[in-house]
């Protein structure tokens, strides 16, 4: 490979470049700047996500409080009020689904929960602070056999749409790469 003086010169220059890169990466000053960069990037992402979570929690706190106090009708009204400023927002859809489920308005609850999961996979994610995986899992386990049985009795567009939403939730719970 190294057959003449030019080859040797190029080889030496290559070694110098490599050594300089190693020195830069292992040197103290560069270590600090590298770790800063690493922290910045990871931190920025974590901060953005935590900020989103805490913003949603703060924004919807009155709804959650009403929900916990079982004032479900007023909680829905509060959501309607908030939807004027944040229409079609995933967390609002999720809470609406949860409340409607508590009120036994099951098909509408399924519709809103499926819409929420379509907008954000966090709700079926075990690791997310916004996760509602166990609630959605339970909903699918309980409602799917019922709706399948109902679909054998009668087929309406609405029933099919609800069933489709449930299958969607079941698919998201099953995992997969998306």
């Amino acid at each position: 490979m190294l057959k003449d003086r030019i080859d040797i010169l190029l080889g030496v220059l290559l070694l110098i470049c490599a050594a300089a890169a190693v020195a830069l990466l292992t040197g103290q000053g560069s270590q600090a700047s590298q770790s800063n960069m690493a922290v910045d990037k990871a931190l920025e992402r974590d901060i953005a996500y935590q900020a989103k979570v805490s913003f949603l929690e703060r924004l919807y706190a009155p709804v959650s409080e009403l929900q916990q106090a079982e004032k479900l009708e007023t909680a829905l009204l509060k959501l309607d009020e908030l939807s004027r400023h944040y229409p079609d927002e995933a967390h609002g859809e999720l809470l609406r689904g949860e409340i409607l489920l508590q009120m036994q308005a099951v098909p509408k609850a399924i519709e809103h929960l499926a819409r929420a999961v379509r907008m954000s996979g966090d709700y079926v994610d075990q690791n997310s602070p916004l996760s509602r995986r166990s609630m959605i899992n339970q909903l699918v386990d309980v409602q799917l056999p019922k709706l399948k049985a109902a679909a054998t009795q009668q087929t309406t567009g609405r029933l099919q749409a609800t069933l489709k939403d449930l299958y969607y939730l079941q698919g998201r719970l099953a995992g997969g790469c998306e």
Partner: peptide
């Protein structure tokens, strides 16, 4: 070595 500019998901399918 996991340098800082390489991103690793903490949730979703890439976290699996």
């Amino acid at each position: 070595l996991r340098p800082g500019f390489v991103l690793f998901s903490e949730r979703g399918s890439a976290a699996e």
